[in-house]
Write a protein that binds this DNA or RNA. Structure first.
Length: 274
DNA sequence: GCATCGATCGGCT
DNA sequence: GCCGATCGATGCC
């Protein structure tokens, strides 16, 4: 059973650390992947210059202005998705960015999505990197949050949305088909399982989450993405500044499980150069 | 391990 | 037009 909505309705600085040790489980046509959350950041809406909601609602951020327990997914850097759990009472646009987790279910699928080689599917024989959501996918109007189940519609229940061009990549067999005689066949370096969901965009890839997941209710019984109590975390979380923020960079609103290897490294904001 | 850099495009000023 | 709640590759220590 998903967690109770009331658990997420409090002040975001209280809610964020509570998410540590909880489990996020995502099911698509491809299968199920679940992670135990190890690192999060709090974003306090109108009081927080670092929040996307700071300047008031827009089409992109409207989910955050609704009730807690819904998913806010955004696209950034022209290629990555990140996700937040909406927190606080209805109307207050606070949210918790999910930054990292440990894959505890669906390890093989997570590896495939992240471009890892496996026994059955060597990396050099893969189709497009686990079919990340394509930015060019036809826009769908933002789901109206309350009530209706967002977006997924009659389409394939793949949370990521369509992949234009559809199928495999031509010419992939070349590398694999070669008569391999030499002792060593070079393959892309597989990052360790530790890195599968280490970082907010990697976490989205591992769970197969893209634009179509925006506005999903994580607490609904039949939701394809659910927030579950999991083992929780009893200890005292570590805290520190949030990663990569220009504004409000000093607020120590990042929370993580101490010494957990899946927690992402801290990086300060770096101004673009030209 | 750490620093730097390019990719790539949507959202907002 | 600017720039990001990022990542992976590369080069160096």
């Amino acid at each position: 059973m998903p967690v109770r909505r009331g658990l997420l309705a409090g002040p975001v600085l209280d809610v964020a650390p509570k998410l540590l040790g909880m489990v996020l489980r995502s099911t698509t046509q491809e299968g199920t992947v679940a992670v135990r959350l190890t690192e999060v950041e709090a974003y306090d809406g109108a009081n927080d210059p670092g929040s996307h909601a700071y300047r008031g609602p827009t089409a992109r951020t409207e989910v955050m202005f609704g009730p807690p327990g819904f998913l806010y997914v955004y696209f950034t850097y022209g290629m990555h998705f990140c996700m937040n759990v909406v927190a606080g009472p209805d109307g207050k646009p606070s949210a918790v960015l999910l930054r990292a987790g440990e894959v505890i279910e669906g390890l093989d699928l997570a590896r495939t999505r992240r471009g890892h080689p496996t026994e059955e599917q060597p990396a050099f024989n893969q189709t497009a990197p686990a079919a990340l959501e394509q930015p060019h996918a036809a826009r769908k109007e933002t789901p109206s949050i309350r009530g209706e189940a967002p977006d997924i519609r009659g389409e394939a229940p793949d949370i990521r949305g369509e992949v234009p061009g559809g199928g495999g990549v031509p010419g992939v067999e070349s590398a694999a088909s070669g008569v391999r005689q030499g002792p060593v066949v070079k393959r892309p370096k597989a990052s360790p399982d530790r890195d599968l969901a280490r970082g907010p965009a990697r976490l989205c890839v591992a769970l197969g989450i893209g634009r179509a997941a925006n506005g999903i209710d994580l607490l609904a019984k039949h939701s394809p993405i659910q927030l579950l109590p999991g083992p929780g975390y009893d200890g005292e979380p570590s805290t520190g500044p949030r990663v990569g923020l220009r504004d409000a960079a000093d607020r120590p609103w990042r929370f993580w499980i101490p010494n957990d290897p899946t927690v992402s490294p801290y990086r300060p904001h770096v101004p673009k150069r030209r």
